[in-house]
Simulated assay, not measured.
Amino acid sequence: MHLRVLHRTSFTYAGKAHDSFNEVRLRPVDDHTQRCREFKLHLTPGAVPREYSDFYNNTVHYFEIIENHPKLVIEAFSLIDTTPSSDRDPVPRVPTDDLKSSPEREMLAEFYNSSHYVPLEVELWREAQDALAEGRSDVWSDVRRLGEHIYRRFAYRPKTTGVSTRATDVLKLRMGVCQDFAHVHLGLCRSMGIPARYVSGYFFNTTRRPREVEASHAWIEAWIPGFGWAAYDPTHARIADDRYIKIAHGRDYSDIRPVNGTYRGAPTRSLKVDVTVREAPPGAPAP
Rank of each mutant, 00 (worst) to 15 (best):
H2R: 13
R4P: 00
F11G: 01
A14V: 05
K16V: 01
A17V: 02
S20H: 12
F21M: 10
E23R: 14
V24W: 02
R27H: 04
P28W: 06
D30G: 13
R35L: 11
C36Y: 07
E38L: 09
H42A: 07
T44W: 14
P45I: 00
G46K: 13
V48C: 02
S53P: 02
Y56Q: 13
Y56T: 03
T59R: 14
T59C: 12
H61I: 02
E64S: 15
I65F: 11
N68T: 03
V73G: 04
S78M: 12
D81T: 08
T83L: 13
D89G: 10
T96R: 15
D97Q: 13
D98M: 14
L99G: 02
S101K: 13
S101R: 14
P103E: 09
L108D: 00
L108Q: 11
S115F: 08
Y117T: 02
P119H: 12
L120K: 06
L124G: 04
R126Q: 12
R126K: 12
E127M: 11
A131I: 05
A131C: 12
D138S: 08
V143H: 06
G147V: 03
E148M: 11
H149S: 01
Y151Q: 06
R153N: 12
R153T: 08
A155Y: 15
R157P: 06
K159G: 04
T161P: 09
G162T: 08
G162D: 10
G162Y: 12
S164L: 15
R166M: 00
T168H: 14
G176E: 05
F181S: 00
A182S: 14
V184L: 11
L186N: 00
S191W: 01
G193F: 11
P195I: 08
P195G: 11
S200K: 03
G201W: 07
N205L: 03
N205H: 05
T206V: 03
R209F: 00
R211S: 15
V213P: 10
E214L: 04
A215Y: 07
S216I: 06
A218I: 05
A218Y: 09
A218W: 08
A222P: 00
P225F: 08
P225K: 08
A231Y: 05
A231S: 10
A231P: 01
T235V: 01
H236A: 12
K246Q: 05
K246A: 03
D252F: 10
S254L: 07
D255G: 08
R257Q: 07
Y263Q: 04
K272W: 03
V275A: 11
R278L: 13
E279Q: 15
